[in-house]
Design a protein around this nucleic acid. Structure first.
Lengths: 351, 351
DNA sequence: GTCAATAATGTTAACGATAACATTTCGCTC
DNA sequence: GAGCGAAATGTTATCGTTAACATTATTGAC
């Protein structure tokens, strides 16, 4: 497009017949300007359709009042709730938020970090799953003194704050709930034993089994196989559906399922129904997250509620503190309570 | 945080003992640099943890290779699929994407436009629902020669491209499908007759009724009441649930429902089940969008599939053309086919 | 050994805004 | 009407980078 150059401060200044600085004062509402001059300047601003150049402004001011949020799985309501909460908190403080998606690979993580750093955001909140090369790049960013807060993912660094739900305890309680109901063959859908090492929810599941002396049957733990060091792993209703189907073909299928998240649970529910089995009579199921859909499944889903909004809010607050603090702040860790929400998908105690 | 100043090109230049321009050449891989110098520069870059300042760079270059996407309802899979497709298309062309959310009000629309313009993005894709003051601001942006493409929302401007699913036809076909099955009392959930004037899906519904000489019963059209000029309206499973409950209290409730989108449909399904009614025997239901969850509801949801990824891709391509074209491009409109996907939630023909 | 092309580097002047300092004008007090 | 502070405006330098235009080696052809 033959784009004509946008008007600059000096253009305005020239047409009005004042110094650029005076125009700047009008635009920013700072310093003294006579009403008469202000009027004339505003007039010219309108006529020339002037918009101030943020690049130049931010370059000079050395800050942008903008924060970046890097999300992994954007289609997960967890991410979206997080984003909402982060945004609300930031907006209230006059900051704006740019969201970047990194869904498939470490390479995309790096791209996201890069473009945010490139635009000189004042700080970054990272809510992707960790992976080697992405983390390495992130480390560089932190060492360049850009404030960073991570949510629900590993990242050890003295200058980086950490917010997370109690995934391990949540996974433990979900599994324990099933055990309490009398289940012995409990499946886990959403990761497998090999690649899911870092997954706290899976660890919680294993811990609960162990504590109740239920041997781990590795055929009951299923999920898509990924190289976690390079491909961050998420879990969808597809994975839940496929995983459940697989479990149902076992000679001795599980009587209960702990799904890594609610979407996975929804997929599993669909597979269970397709097989003509009843929930919870034939198979009980617990999810994780308590997304708003969880009350709308049939039967309504027992799940572990994580305080998504709170996580976002706290992360944003911590980041703002880092941005605005003159002093060095040491790493803070906030592990937030999760709560088991019992609905009908787990039903009553088994005879 | 006592942030020490990040290293600049000149810092590198000083330590290596060359001119800043030489360092710039190394960083950008442009022009001639001897291997020896390159080595030394790269060494210094590493040691000082140099990152180039994008603000300065972009200010000088007058473009940022960045595109902004403004989303309304971020929790809708429609938005997220869109975002994914947009992002993929852009990344392939070396652009990066910043997403802004504007969920509640025209004010937030404006904030989003403002921060994107502030960061001098090369172009903006807008996928919020339209509203007066937001549109007015957007008009200013367009007139400042920033390329803009809108998706699925009204915005008339000679310099703005428009991509949209065939909402009207989709709504028409969904309703017609129900009529073909023998339904006469068909409810619409997701908007009401007053505030939903601009909603093509509702118009399609009305048109189908009219064409089959079924009188419109305004009690059968329900949704949250919003002032559409200032508060963009979306529709969630909450709204579907509430709306369905309301319809069920009518003396003569509908035998079929057309829900404005799949989420609304899911909420409605939940309400129908809670009332002890069967789908599709007692009430048939059609959604819109064909989100991935639609096959996972029970029964699987009949819905109108809109090509979300294609919309995103086309919008991104159009925007890139605008950004890179030297010539003026006249408004282009792409209306994309929707497809009725019949699943079990509408069932067989009524006797 | 001359000349021209290529390679390697340097210099200058922006990009558009603003912080910091400088100057001028005005109103008011005593 | 001298003196002073507030009000109104202007000047200068700079943020960090790079495009555009020098300048200075270096190489090789003849």
């Amino acid at each position: 497009m033959a784009r004509k150059k946008p008007a600059t401060l000096s253009d305005i200044a020239a047409t009005v017949g004042v110094a650029p600085m005076t125009v700047s004062r009008v635009i920013n509402g700072s310093g003294y300007v006579s009403d008469e001059t202000r009027e004339k300047v505003l007039q010219a601003v309108k006529e020339l359709n002037y918009r101030r150049n943020g690049l130049a402004r931010n370059l000079k001011r050395q800050y942008t009042e903008t924060v970046g949020l890097v999300l992994g799985d954007i289609s997960n309501p967890y991410s979206t709730e997080l984003a909402r909460a982060v945004r609300e908190t930031l907006i209230n403080q006059g900051y704006s938020l740019f969201i970047c998606i990194s869904e498939h690979s470490a390479k995309e993580d790096i791209l996201a970090f890069e473009s945010l750093a490139n635009h000189s955001v004042d700080g970054i909140i990272v809510a992707t799953r960790s992976n080697e090369s992405g983390d390495k790049y992130l480390r560089g960013i932190v060492e360049a003194n850009i404030p960073v807060v991570v949510i629900g993912r590993d990242f050890q660094h003295e200058d980086v704050d950490f917010v997370s739900p109690e995934n391990l305890k949540g996974g433990f309680e979900a599994t324990q709930h099933l055990i309490d109901l009398g289940h012995k063959r409990i499946g886990f859908i959403g990761a497998n034993l090999k690649s899911g090492t870092g997954l706290k929810r899976l660890q919680g599941y294993l811990k609960a089994l162990e504590q109740h002396n239920i041997p781990v049957d590795e055929r009951l733990v299923t999920g898509r196989n990924e190289d976690i060091s390079e491909v961050p792993g998420y879990s969808t209703e597809e994975i839940g559906f496929e995983g459940m189907k697989r479990l149902l073909t076992l000679p001795n299928p599980p009587t209960a399922i702990f799904a890594r998240n609610d979407f996975t649970a929804i997929g599993a529910i669909s597979a269970i129904k397709e097989a003509g089995l009843r929930i919870p009579e034939d198979i009980a199921i617990v999810g994780f997250d308590d997304i708003s859909l969880a009350v709308r499944t049939s039967p309504p889903l027992t799940t572990v509620r994580q305080p998504m909004r709170l996580e976002g809010q706290i992360a944003a607050e911590m980041l703002l503190e880092r941005i605005e603090s003159k002093e060095k702040i040491s790493r803070r860790e906030r592990i937030l309570n999760c709560e088991l929400i019992v609905r009908e998908s787990t039903g009553l105690r088994r005879r």
